[in-house]
Write a protein that binds this DNA or RNA. Structure first.
Lengths: 143, 143
DNA sequence: CCGTATCCTCTATGATACTG
DNA sequence: CAGTATCATAGAGGATACGG
């Protein structure tokens, strides 16, 4: 749709943005990171995953697992027993993503307080309802 | 909401999952990573950002910038000139997230072919329409 | 036990038009 | 230039019930 509609100053995001968005969508969705993180230790059964991830619905667990399997991140193995048993485990590709994803999780753990503080500050000082200063001098920008 | 409803085998994700999800939602949304990446080089004006990120709407650019500012990732500075000028730049917190996010982007660049191959393989072999084997021996699981 | 099939809601995103 | 306001929509995600 966009094509090369823009001939602006600097085309920061040429064509890579396509599959970058794909990956970000995948890891950004509500459960993917939780699932692969849960599988980091050992292979698990469907019901184990559901028990280990509080709040996930059957539907979303299934959908997430299918997507990850399709993308080669996890391996699904069904044992035709009675009762049925299915095990999920990370592939090498899945583990490689886990590394990068955990960096993000670590960031979250390390900085969530900073983010919280910033949010509180913005509520108090009423940023957003900022008072437009009448003065217009070059050296006193309005925050 | 979940509380401690589950008393299962191993509580893999206790309470951290809350703010982990918050961070993942933020970086997972359609434009955040593109915006902070674009700001990695230098501070930019609103219109520069819009020109540098093909396909973003005014609304989403504004929404994304507000969210990032609220979370302390970027700093907004308005110069009360005519015409108005507003500059956005990454804060230290924003740059720290950029590092982790770029790790993910690097992963995408490095492995998007593997993912593509896996997807094609799943389409061809018809995984999902897997043939249920009649046999039920312990040592021959169905993939 | 391991899912699939439906229905339903809510949010993210976009298009468009207007303002300081 | 730098937004804000409003309306519309697709799809993610959840609840529930049924099937192999």
């Amino acid at each position: 749709m966009a094509g090369r509609a823009i001939s602006g100053p600097c085309q920061a995001w040429p064509e890579e943005s396509g599959f970058i968005r794909e990956v970000l969508d995948r890891i950004g969705d509500k459960w993917t990171v939780l699932v692969i993180s849960t599988l980091s230790g050992s292979s698990l059964r469907y019901s184990d995953l559901q028990a280990s991830i509080p709040g996930i619905s059957q539907r979303m667990l299934t959908v997430t697992l299918k997507a990850l399997e399709r993308d080669g991140m996890i391996l699904r193995t069904a044992y035709p027993e009675i009762p049925p048993r299915v095990e999920y485990e990370l592939t090498a590709l899945g583990r490689s993503l886990l590394d990068s994803a955990m960096a993000l999780v670590s960031w979250a753990v390390a900085h969530h307080e900073d983010v919280g503080a910033s949010r509180r500050a913005h509520e108090q000082t009423g940023v957003g309802r900022e008072k437009a200063r009448a003065a217009a001098s070059e050296d006193s920008p309005v925050r």
